[in-house]
Design a protein around this nucleic acid. Structure first.
Lengths: 341, 341
DNA sequence: ATGAAAGCGCTAACAT
DNA sequence: ATGTTAGCGCTTTCAT
């Protein structure tokens, strides 16, 4: 059953059928009715491939992200897939997923696959896709010559590349300030991989310390694994080392919750003896006990903004090349109340 | 740049170019070299839409799942998206995501959209997509007349429908037995929505109770929300009611962790005064304190099996219409050791 | 081993 | 308002 069959059955040309299908207003009400009727009772559905061939688009967007099943992946990026799909579908775009492992192996190949599939645009989710070695970002710049590229919390200058950024700096600045102003003395800053995002967070921590007259010591800036067992050992080693701290600012809720677990297991009282701030406002931050104070990076806004810009861009409306979305601190029970200080 | 350009540039027919692209062995080594060379230096990429039109397939699979950003969604299904994408891509299939909200609104429409896109098969992730009212499943049966449908933990009889099932019955049977054999007296069974999956779990609980000579009381079978705050109130109301329990078997890690939080906040010692078993082996079960004993439903195996069957089916190899994958109990720290009983 | 040509089903420019 | 027709770029059948 194709458009010619419908054309014959309804006694009009294929052009008219096409017009009806695509909602053109240059069709008389009478023929429209007739055609619609024939379509309905024949169960005809336009062939998407033929349409794609003619229009050179099937309205699909390639989403490059880390595997949501990868234990090492950043869990606050998983909901982003949902936000993006929802917003894209609202605008009648399909989302094709391209999941990479955390080691980024195959990034270039995946981008090539998207281009081969003739996606209308590419969305890249996560700051780690932008690597410090410029050579590894060349494939993104190249892709942008074919289709617009939108980065969710990724920072890369280039033609046809659009960056949606979390305010990572302010994220940690707020977290650190919260601890300082609730009388925490020695604040540890914990990162995992020092991606671009985490670098900006570190700068926020340092700035907040400086702005409040605290001295920053490299001893208090540490790398800690996501992994539950490894992070436990990490906190044990800090104790052996004898490092004194009564506050922790982290780049990820996972680490914050690990710190919490360690403290609980050692009888350290939270937040009296130790205050902790996470990052991400992930599901972990709500299901732990005590509930975690954390900074929400507003990934939903990032995703909504990205899709808005994408849609407008594809409609030919010029879009700004970057947007920074503000974070917000969510006070829960792993930090001291400001009244009690 | 299309196949005709390549044809001209390399001095052979488009047929031969097509043969080279598709790896036919009926091409002389010499011409193959020549054509490949031209393709390489021209940067030519076959047009996927044209190919799709000719073959009537673009090797895409539609995945119907709940929105991973939906707070009410079942969090052990999120990794399934990753497993499926990984396995499908291994077999050179693209995954198009169709995320539904937990209320299932638009299910029928989404399935129609997939069919309109001419996907090669449909994968449905989650038992709740199969509803108790048969009328709401008709769209799935209808879809199966066009393309094979694979259900991840969904149970529906029908032509061209393939079911991968968790052993939900045994899941709760094991959990309940574990509590009984570690001397727990009064075991609460908590579900959230009583989906098909949860019904089977409830049956497992009842069977384990009966098999060990325990009497089952309806008072001990309760519905509890996923939501952190609501579930807290739920446990408070149980206390007001005066219900005595020293063990909980749940249908979801979320509920188990909520129970844990409540217990911690009330000074109830875990597992001595209260033993808890979750379900899902989700990220929550590892990041809580004490770490949660839980039943792993092996979603990864379910997904791998589904994709294997899908690929073979599409290659024309007959596949069994259902597979049940066994669960396994993961003992951690919210249940008593078997030696100490 | 290679090539000519028909066909896949739609859209859009152009004509009426 | 409606129709004719030429693409879109590939695969495949059938010759040679």
């Amino acid at each position: 059953m194709n458009i010619y069959d419908i054309s014959k059955l309804s006694g009009v040309s294929v052009t008219t059928v096409s017009r009806v299908i695509n909602g053109s207003d240059k069709v008389s009400e009478k023929t429209r009715k007739k055609v619609l009727e024939v379509i309905k009772e024949s169960g005809y559905t336009p062939n998407a491939f033929a349409r794609g061939l003619g229009l050179n688009s099937m309205r699909t967007i390639g989403i490059l992200c880390v595997d949501p099943a990868d234990a090492n992946s950043c869990i606050n990026l998983t909901p982003a897939i949902g936000y993006l799909e929802r917003e894209l579908r609202r605008n009648d775009y399909d989302s094709i997923l391209y999941c990479l492992e955390y080691n980024m192996r195959g990034k270039e190949h995946y981008i090539k696959m998207m281009l081969d599939r003739r996606v209308d645009a590419i969305i890249i989710v996560g700051s780690f896709f932008i690597e410090s070695n410029p050579k590894n970002n060349q494939c993104i710049l190249d892709a942008a010559r074919s289709v617009p590229v939108f980065l969710i919390n990724g920072n890369l200058e280039g033609d046809n590349i659009y960056c949606m950024l979390c305010d990572d700096f302010n994220n940690s600045y707020m977290a650190t300030t919260e601890l300082i102003t609730t009388n925490v003395k020695n604040i540890l800053f914990l990162y995992t991989t020092l991606s671009e995002s985490e670098k900006r967070k570190m700068e926020g921590y340092i700035a907040a310390m400086n702005d409040h007259g605290r001295t920053v010591s490299q001893d208090y800036i540490r790398c800690c694994s996501h992994d539950v067992k490894e992070s436990y050992r990490f906190f044990e080693s800090l104790a052996e080392e004898g490092l004194q701290y009564d506050g922790i600012v982290t780049c990820e809720d996972t680490i914050a919750v690990s710190a919490l677990k360690y403290a609980l297991s050692k009888g350290i009282s939270i937040p009296e003896q130790l205050s902790i701030v996470g990052s991400g406002n992930t599901i972990l931050s709500q299901y732990c006990y005590p509930e975690l104070t954390t900074v929400d990076g507003n990934y939903e806004s990032l995703c909504v903004t990205a899709v808005n810009m994408l849609v407008r861009h594809l409609e030919g409306i010029p879009a700004p090349s970057r947007a920074v979305i503000s974070s917000r601190l969510i006070r829960r029970n792993t930090t001291k109340s400001r009244n009690k200080e």
